[in-house]
Deep mutational scan, measured.
Amino acid sequence: MTEYKLVVVGAGGVGKSALTIQLIQNHFVDEYDPTIEDSYRKQVVIDGETCLLDILDTAGQEEYSAMRDQYMRTGEGFLCVFAINNTKSFEDIHHYREQIKRVKDSEDVPMVLVGNKCDLPSRTVDTKQAQDLARSYGIPFIETSAKTRQGVDDAFYTLVREIRKHKEKMSKDGKKKKKKSKTKCVIM
């Protein structure tokens, strides 16, 4: 069974824990209790493949930012979460993405942009803004509501699919490099 290491990042209060708990335990946590770091595991079937999701729910508070490099190193894919009623959390996505790329030393890291709290009427981040940002990053965008469960499975499952595509691409690139290195030079 394939294991996928997913990391949920975003500013404090955007609903990272609520999304994760909704996926794992099928219930909505409405009281806000700032996370330092929590880890969850769940076995699911995605596109006919049974897999184990190892999900790291991270601290959004700035005082825990020193811990970010460590979990970013171990993560295979990242859910970059903002709240649709919090423009600052949307603007912060850029910083999370840049930090992930720096730590992973790669421009090509599996990510999904997630606009959470889409059940709320007080939207300050337009869907088109988020779609445009995701398009500019070359990553999928999904709106979710941890409260109603809308888009929750889709967000995590899409990230797994992005990781699969990335692994497939990397193995193809690896095979191309191996083929090239088999060419021999004969000096007579």
Rank of each mutant, 00 (worst) to 15 (best):
V45H: 12
A59Y: 02
V9K: 03
I55K: 01
H27A: 15
N26G: 13
D54H: 14
Q61W: 04
C51V: 14
D30Y: 08
E37Y: 11
V29D: 09
L23S: 13
G12F: 08
G13M: 12
G10Q: 02
Y64C: 05
V44G: 12
L53V: 13
G60S: 05
I36H: 00
T20Q: 02
G13E: 14
L53T: 10
Y64R: 05
K16Q: 03
T58E: 09
D54P: 14
S17K: 00
V8F: 04
D33E: 05
G48W: 06
P34V: 04
E31L: 06
T50D: 12
A11Q: 11
K16G: 06
A11T: 09
N26W: 07
C51S: 11
E31C: 08
I55G: 03
Y4A: 11
I55S: 06
A18T: 10
G48D: 10
Q25A: 15
I55Y: 05
L6A: 06
K5F: 03
K5H: 07
D33S: 02
H27E: 14
V14P: 10
V29E: 07
E31D: 12
Y64I: 04
G13N: 14
E37C: 15
Y32W: 09
T58V: 05
I55T: 12
S39N: 12
D30K: 10
E3Q: 12
L53C: 14
E37M: 15
I21E: 05
G15W: 01
Q25L: 15
V7Q: 07
L52G: 14
T50G: 10
Y40M: 01
T50Q: 11
I55W: 04
E49R: 11
A18F: 00
F28T: 04
I55C: 10
Y32N: 05
G15R: 01
Y4R: 13
L56W: 08
R41M: 11
Q25M: 15
D33N: 04
T20K: 04
G15V: 01
L19T: 14
I46K: 09
L56P: 01
N26Q: 12
I46H: 10
I24F: 15
K5G: 08
D47T: 08
K16D: 02
